[in-house]
Design a protein around this nucleic acid. Structure first.
Lengths: 229, 229
DNA sequence: GATGATTTGTACGTATGTATA
DNA sequence: ATATACATACGTACAAATCAT
């Protein structure tokens, strides 16, 4: 693995995990020192992250982790709903038997996590659940776009997303509706059920305090930086 | 403007216009000489193009213009249909009066291009028509994804797309259906009419001889390279 | 399969542009 | 407003990996 690739993956992980927050600067020298490399591979990693939308780069002014406006964030959530809905629809049409069994198995495991109230495990399994659905649609490009969008939204999903036990139960029930539709091959219902699920996710997100949202920044103006290319 | 940016834009233009073909290699030294720069900015431009999906980069093996498999190309066309459909739906919901007038004006201009059989002008105006529709949806992220997808498919749309006069007439009629639905605010019909239009575009595309499609490569195997991230 | 030629990956130094005093 | 400090952009040199012979 090349150094640039290593640095890119490390930065991606740190951004997605919340260890580096949107709006914060990415200093080339500092990163180079921190990874024991020269600035060259750091710069190449930053260029790639900028192209992916996770980072915003302005010539001669350095790179910062993308901090979309509330408007853009809303737009992204809305399209996330559409994309996830399409994934569910396609999955209902074309998931193989083995994939259906696998999805049900994960769903069943998640049921016991709900029972035991293990939020961390549920959140982790939830990622797998959705990813399996993307794959089940058998459309590599749709899977790519949806995953990319989920990644770009990841920093803005509050740290402990399934904070309330009630949300955990509700999430599992919503998944249940999606799965039932998929197993029946009802692609219309599958799409709608999934869209309803993601809309709920968005609403829960919006109802939570916003530690990093741009609208929360009271005094200072972190100079809105979009994630577009 | 920085050199890396200049080179990136120049390469993008060459790829989209067909002056550089999918599967062809992008030699760093050659590009550097060609643009009178060093390899450093060339490399940064290539990294960004790779992240955008137009170019595929493999460590220690250089960059080549993305040549998706037929499977991937089909997936991309299918999602292009969905995305364009969503744009039309959103446009029907939220286009301003001025935007509607503007769209109608373009459509009217295109009618005279059909009459005079000016294919080049029609193709050019067609790009504007679709872009206006993306903007009319008032969702910046959807517009971004749709534009990105159109760009990635661009190299695979045959050079003279509106080769037959009949196709020109049909295209304009399909646009007419989309516009009528949008003006009536019928977002369901708008989406369906647009999806039908893009499906037709895809079918016309598939019915044409394939100068660069990977399936056309008879003897040599250009080592399928996906456009994924 | 080993070796040389070629190309990519990385380091470092200098130039240029931006921000602050 | 000018100058100074600082970070980024670029060029050059070398190291490492790939491929052609």
């Amino acid at each position: 693995m090349t150094r640039a690739e290593t640095i890119r993956l490390a930065l991606t992980d740190q951004i997605l995990s919340g260890r580096r927050l949107p709006g914060s600067a990415l200093d080339e020298n500092e990163l180079a020192r921190s990874y024991g490399a020269s600035r060259t591979p750091v710069r190449e990693a930053l260029r790639q992250l900028a192209a992916s939308g996770l980072v915003v780069h302005r010539p001669h002014r350095g790179a910062v982790i993308a901090l979309p406006s509330d408007q853009m964030l809303g737009d992204m959530f809305q399209i996330m709903t559409e994309l996830e809905g399409l994934c569910a629809e396609y999955a209902a049409r074309s998931m193989t038997l083995a994939q259906r069994d696998d999805l049900v198995a994960i769903h069943t495991q998640m049921a016991s996590m709900v029972s035991s109230g293990d939020r961390a495990a549920y959140a982790s399994a939830n990622e797998v659940f959705h990813t399996r659905l993307y794959e089940g649609g058998h459309n590599a490009y749709l899977a790519e776009l949806t995953l990319q969008t989920r990644q770009r939204l990841q920093p803005f999903r509050r740290a402990q997303f399934f904070s309330s036990l009630g949300r955990l139960v509700a999430s599992h029930q919503e998944h249940e509706a999606v799965i039932q539709a998929i197993l029946r091959g009802d692609h219309v219902k599958a799409r709608l059920a999934m869209m309803q699920h993601i809309v709920t996710v968005r609403d829960v997100y919006l109802s939570m305090p916003a530690p990093i949202s741009s609208s929360a920044a009271s005094g200072n103006k972190p100079e809105q930086v979009a994630g577009g290319r």
